[in-house]
Amino acid sequence: MDQQTLDRILSTELVSLEEPPDEKRAAIEHLLDIAVDAGRVTDREATLDALLEREGETSTGVGKGIGIPHAKTDGVAEPTVVFSRSSEGIDFDAPDGKPATLLFMILVPASGSDDHLSILSSLSRALMDDDVRDRLHAAESPEAVTDTLMKAIA
């Protein structure tokens, strides 16, 4: 993934350092609304349905305190990643039982073929690094979050 694509997928307006609600469904809506406010979502209801349907299949808690709710839906016009973090953590039914403190929402258009898998795998690979997770927890500005991710992914 090149720098320009990444800049567009994860712009600073898609990064929130405010505390999200501590319950999974509410947190998912909170992340979705950040994408809505940034003008990325054309159909909020369809997008929420797609996200919840995916959560119903298996939860998107992947362990190490990370939750990656995601959906492939016509409710968005372009690939979008939203970031938020929770100090207490949110129960995302992770296999290791750890609550999710770093939250990434991935939204890709239904026509986006494999975008969704490639974003998911690039992000997961970056997040396997303890140092990357520490820096995301410590980041004091949206720019620090996007910088950390850009460096880790690129």
Partner: peptide, 9 residues
Amino acid sequence: SMLAVTSLG
């Protein structure tokens, strides 16, 4: 590790 397996893409 779910994270590691997801990272394979």
